[in-house]
């Protein structure tokens, strides 16, 4: 039971960092004014158009598509696969498991494999393409290693070293109720969980901030209507009095 408590503490701490850190960052982005209209044009002239632009950006990676097809392919493969894998993991947190989650269980496996392939390709770029090698910092490599480690330990448990998933589920349902259950002693599972907790904890302090950031990017989220509407930040308005 010691490990069950240790992991409970780890996950509560990681979740607190994730939620608290992210909430603070989003608050910080939101309260900082954008004093000038700077959408990258051509830009939508209505709010609805902007919502569509952001949707295309988030769901299809529109700008990246225009930019670099290989990068787009591996980028969207990774993010799409991650989404499926996360959805598949919902079965550990819900009872009864929602029908769509049951339905996508087999796809989740393929997604796990695709995720690993995409991550490997993205990592290879950091070594093979001179320009990308130049801009890469150790944290860029570590982030990929972390994600790949999570994927590898997860897939390892699926294919090679099974763990007692029923007990794991009971453990996480318990965590949600603040009622700590036993956690199967399994090195692969331990490693998987530690890496996931680490990912949650570093999220608000790392480049993973691109996730909320894209919604706050003035070049993407502003409406192209500067001649029709007067746009004035509070600090700029003070200059007029």
């Amino acid at each position: 039971m010691t490990s069950a408590y240790a992991f409970a503490a780890l996950f509560y701490a990681a979740a607190a960092l994730l939620v608290g850190g992210l909430a603070y960052k989003i608050y910080d982005f939101a309260r900082t004014p954008a004093p000038l209209k700077i959408p990258t044009t051509p830009a939508p002239t209505t709010r609805g158009g902007v919502a569509l632009r952001l949707l295309r950006e988030v769901a299809l990676f529109e700008s990246l598509f225009r930019s670099n097809l290989w990068l787009w392919l591996f980028g969207i493969l990774f993010h799409g696969a991650l989404l499926l894998v996360l959805a598949r993991h919902l079965r550990y947190f819900t009872e009864p498991v929602w029908a769509p989650v049951i339905w996508l269980q087999p796809f989740g496996i393929y997604a796990g494999l695709a995720m690993a392939v995409a991550l490997a390709a993205l990592w290879a770029r950091r070594f093979l393409v001179e320009r990308i090698r130049y801009i890469s910092t150790p944290s860029d490599h570590l982030m990929l290693a972390l994600l790949l480690g999570i994927g590898a330990t997860g897939l390892g448990m699926k294919f090679f070293m099974h763990t007692d998933v029923v007990a794991v589920k009971a453990y996480f349902l318990g965590l949600l109720r603040f009622d700590i259950q036993p956690l199967p002693a399994h090195p692969g599972l331990y490693l998987h969980l530690i890496l996931v907790a680490l990912l949650m904890a570093v999220f608000p302090f790392s480049k993973l901030l691109h996730a909320p950031g894209v919604f706050f990017s003035p070049t993407r989220n502003q409406v192209d209507d500067p001649r029709e509407k007067r746009h004035l930040a509070p600090w700029a308005a003070k200059l007029e009095s």
């Binding site: 960052k25 910080d28 982005f29 900082t32 004014p33 954008a34 004093p35 700077i38 700008s63 990246l64 930019s67 670099n68 990068l71 980028g75 770029r125 393409v129 320009r131 990308i132 801009i135 890469s136 910092t137 860029d140 480049k207 901030l209 691109h210 950031g213 894209v214 706050f216 990017s217 003035p218 070049t219 930040a233 600090w235």
Partner: peptide
């Protein structure tokens, strides 16, 4: 004063698409 600056300094993933 500038949301653009704050968000852009935080959000870059070093993907290299702009390089």
């Amino acid at each position: 004063k500038y949301r653009s600056l704050k968000v852009y300094l935080d959000a870059c993933v070093h993907c290299g698409a702009c390089t």
